[in-house]
Design a protein around this nucleic acid. Structure first.
Lengths: 316, 316
DNA sequence: ACGCAATATAACTCAATGCTATGCAATTGG
DNA sequence: CCAATTGCATAGCATTGAGTTATATTGCGT
């Protein structure tokens, strides 16, 4: 005997609510609709679902047994509704995001922490990569979002690039570094200190080479290379080494008063940090929400940076 | 977002079967039907349920989440079908049956044991009572069936009485009783032994009085009264007492070779054992099945009795 | 016994679901 | 790499079922 889940659900409603009228109200339907449907179900079964001729409607054995299943269906149905609403509202789901290691660890991680606070049921699957790989993965659908620096105007096929921060690198050192307080630094000053080199496949490494070339320092001592931002920071703090870092990374660490930037102007790199996202497929609500969150956080960060630069408070 | 359980069920089928075509087959529907329904569901949700453009149909996060609920609905639906089939087939449910104590304990209990063997999921709610009470309870719906002796032709309103055994009482005693082997017993023989009297409100008590009057024994020694068949049997076995019992009760105990009947003819009581059932309401399948079982068992018992009487085997 | 409240029935409408036929896209095999 | 195959999407149509309002009927309490 094949039974329609909807019929069982109606039965459960009537049994639980104790009547057709209230059951119909609970389901948002009319009383005759329930009456007829349950009558048809009884006819199909050949057995009454309710004791006949009793007014506080009392279910028969069969009615009670089927109502129990209907109750399960009701619950599952409600749970599905909740799940759907959460998903559509971006409160649930997974976000696969990747970016360049330094930005992910020093900037994005903080933002992810804030996002998780507000949306604990959204799973963030984070990974690392550089522009080329990131774009390929976004295009193929392996990634939902990528955050990395890109030269302006470089927009292949079905990919959007939303710029969120001006690309600007600085030379970083520990807070008490001999060069930290000097103004009008000369090249010779810099050349005397050991350098920490970013991984050779990173954009920062390209930037480092370009900058060194620009300031006509051809030969530097590389004391350490290949480490993550955490390792780099530790080495920086414990030595007089220099390295090149995005200004935003230094800015994010300003509270710890561990690192600072040298007062030497470096040409803006021809790349801006941005969010890479696909345009050829629907964006899942959780991804959209995360995307917006990151964008707004960066907007706030940019404001904060420009404000700080005007006052030069953090360098005091 | 209100979701139709049927849609979730379809989704689950498609996800579990790994495709629209096989899912449709599993549900006994056509593939276009599923395709259109799921497309409509996607439209309602505003989110895809399956990754687009991939042929081994793979569900999205949302699709998987909703399919999980659909699976629950599917299970509950199937369970309901099973429950309904069992109930309709009389394999499940409760039977409320009552009868006169002696018959219930000595005859019906054995039959119930056999029934339970075959239908362990049918619950038998047994109780005791005499004709008047039994009929009232059957009429009121408190009982499904009653088994008791009734005078023929006494059929009030909405009650059926199916005769299943000729009413015939005998004088019972222990197997080795001094009177057990005698033929052509005389009244004086009987009068000298103590009697066990049935409960005064039982039909058997009426029968006892009638019989004693018939054989013109006015004054008997009552050594024990009011006990159940079990107590009566124990007393009978341990003494030379006599009592009156339905022949079928003695017959059912023939294997134990503990009790026997005196070879003295007693007028048939004007009552036949039968099954009382209501005619004004639908009979539940389990009740019908139990009813049939009891009736067929009694038919077999009657055959067995008449066969035994012709051969007088059991008395040898 | 009467009145109230709840259920059953009637008559009708329309959305949803079923089907077959067919187009189109993705995967597989040579 | 192209062709064949398999499987999903779409179209058009028929039918069922579920929804509605209006109304009759039936238990139940006073």
């Amino acid at each position: 005997m094949q039974l329609d889940p909807n019929h069982l659900l109606m039965l459960a409603a009537v049994v639980d609510e104790g009547g057709l009228t209230s059951g119909a109200h609970a389901l948002g339907k009319s009383q005759p609709s329930l009456s007829r449907t349950l009558a048809a179900l009884e006819a199909r079964l050949g057995q009454p679902l309710f004791e006949k001729g009793r007014r506080p409607l009392v279910p028969t054995e069969l009615g009670a047994a089927l109502a129990a299943q209907g109750r399960i269906i009701w619950q599952a149905s409600g749970e599905a509704s909740v799940q759907a609403d959460l998903y559509i509202g971006g409160k649930t789901g997974a976000v696969r995001v990747a970016g360049t290691p330094v930005f992910m660890d020093a900037v994005i991680a903080t933002m992810i922490a804030g996002f998780q606070q507000a949306h604990p049921n959204v799973r963030i699957d984070q990974s690392y990569g550089y522009a080329e790989t990131l774009m390929r993965d976004v295009e193929s659908g392996a990634l939902d979002l990528a955050i990395c620096p890109l030269p302006p105007g470089d927009l292949p096929e079905p990919i959007a690039f939303e710029e969120i921060l001006q690309g600007r690198n600085v030379i970083a050192c520990r807070m008490g570094h001999p060069l930290a307080r000097k103004r009008a630094l000369r090249l010779e000053d810099i050349a005397n200190y050991p350098w920490i080199a970013p991984p050779t496949n990173s954009p920062l490494y390209q930037d480092l080479r370009a900058i060194l070339h620009e300031i006509e320092v051809d030969d530097v001592k590389v004391s350490f290379s290949g480490g993550s931002i955490s390792a780099v920071r530790t080495v920086l703090e414990g030595s007089d080494s220099l390295t090149i870092l995005p200004y935003s990374v230094i800015f994010m660490m300003r509270q710890q008063k561990a690192l600072t930037a040298l007062d030497i102007r470096i040409k803006h790199v021809p790349r801006n940090l941005g969010i890479i996202s696909p345009t050829d497929r629907p964006v899942r609500p959780a991804v959209r929400r995360f995307h917006r969150y990151i964008a707004s956080e960066f907007k706030a960060l940019a404001r904060s940076i420009s404000h700080a630069q005007q006052n030069s408070v953090w360098r005091a």
